[in-house]
Computed example of a mutant assay.
Amino acid sequence: MNSSYIWLSGSAGQLDLFKSFFDKNGSPRSSEYLRWQYLDGNQSVSPLVVLGLDGGSLDNPDVSCIYALFQNEFLCSGSAILGSQSLDTMTAPKFRGKGLFNKYASIVYEKAANEGVSFVYGFPNGNSAHGFFNKLGWQKLDPVPFLVRPISVSYLIDRLPVLKRFSSLFDGLRIRSRPFDLDEGYVLKDNFVLDHRYEELWEGFRQSIGVALNRNVSYMKWRLFSKPGEVYSNAAIFDGEGGDLRAICFFTQKQKHGGSVGYIMDLMYGDGFVREGEALLNYVVDKLYRANCDILLAWCFDHSPSYEAYRRCGFLAFPERLRPIELHFGVRAFSKEIEPVVANRKNWYISYLDSDTV
């Protein structure tokens, strides 16, 4: 079997090759999305995407496998480091069973380590988890911290095997949000354009976090305001008109999993402002209720600084057996020095901003 590979660059031909591979193998990507994700990213670093050409050559490429890492700045124990997320990974059906997944992942990991990337993390699905954890040396940090806040009772019951036959009895029964209570002097705004006040809020919010994507203004503008084909909203509470930002919530709504799903992309609030975080989240829950969402989902660890607001607003841990998709959470460090930090689940902060599917 001829064995060669190329690294994705900014050329139109390579991007077309990348896109056509996914299109032919049942997982279509738009050219705009691929360019946004890998070539126009938040960091000025080259993409770590390898295209295996085991069925062809450089002159006549037949892509056999793709392994892709996306690099970004992370905060680790208070310092900025370069980390990466494992995203688009696939082997063409006719090349499966030949060890290409391990081969090209190892090639990418070696280059990543040589270029100063400290670790790779991600959320393998049920089909690929075995390869990541048993063959690529990833450490499990399961479970993914799904939180759920039901709205449509029938939507929820329809997903409980024992009670499914009774779901029609609850058609139209919906769980409202708790009253939205904002103290006098505060100002609430929808779709706040991020500025230095957000940066200041994030700087304070992250102080108790061990490991996280650096959610600075630059990252947020790339992630939420330039992603092709997506619409995200936010709501924010300020201490008076033109005052300090006390809390902000990012969210979106999608038709997925057989219904209308509201996703809380992230929730942040200042130290000592949990009441404001709770009020803001109740406001967002009410907006999504009025938009006819069936269910709300979030990712938040119970040790995260925003967990208390979620708890107060009726979000519950989502049992793994009821989740719409099987996902795992894991990491592999590229240096022994950083491994004890990133391999400890208690150090991590993640939200739906870390997901590449929402």
Rank of each mutant, 00 (worst) to 15 (best):
C293K: 01
Y269E: 03
R321H: 11
N292G: 04
E278W: 01
A333G: 02
R323S: 10
V284I: 14
S306R: 06
L322D: 06
I264L: 13
Y263H: 13
G262M: 04
A279W: 07
P319C: 03
E276S: 10
V284D: 03
C300P: 03
I350Q: 00
P319H: 08
A247F: 11
D302H: 12
G259Y: 08
P305R: 03
Y269P: 01
H303M: 05
H257G: 09
S306M: 12
F334Y: 14
C293A: 15
F250G: 03
R312T: 00
S260N: 14
I248Q: 03
R332Y: 08
E308I: 00
E320Q: 15
H303V: 05
S304P: 02
I325F: 10
Y349K: 08
V261L: 13
P319Q: 09
H328I: 00
N292M: 07
R290M: 03
E339K: 15
E337P: 07
L267Y: 08
D266T: 07
H328C: 06
L322Q: 06
L316V: 10
F315H: 04
D239I: 07
A279M: 04
H257Y: 15
D266P: 08
G258T: 09
D354S: 04
D302R: 09
D356V: 01
G243N: 01
S260D: 01
G330M: 10
G330R: 08
G277N: 11
N344R: 14
K336S: 15
D354Q: 05
L245D: 01
R246E: 09
R312S: 08
T252I: 03
C300S: 15
F273G: 01
V274P: 00
A343G: 15
R290K: 14
S306V: 05
L296S: 06
S306N: 14
F273D: 09
V284A: 08
D239A: 14
L267I: 00
S355H: 11
M268N: 11
R312Q: 11
I338P: 14
D354C: 02
T252D: 01
M265A: 09
K346G: 07
C249M: 08
F318V: 12
C313Q: 05
R345E: 07
Y263K: 00
I295T: 13
W348I: 07
N292Y: 12
Y310R: 07
G258I: 10
K346W: 11
N292T: 12
V285F: 07
V331T: 12
I295P: 00
C293P: 03
Y263N: 06
W348A: 00
V284M: 07
G277Y: 10
A333P: 00
I264V: 15
Y283L: 13
A279N: 07
S351M: 04
F318K: 02
E276Q: 14
D286G: 09
P340M: 10
S306E: 15
K256F: 05
G242M: 10
E337D: 15
E326D: 08
L322I: 03
Y269M: 14
Y289E: 00
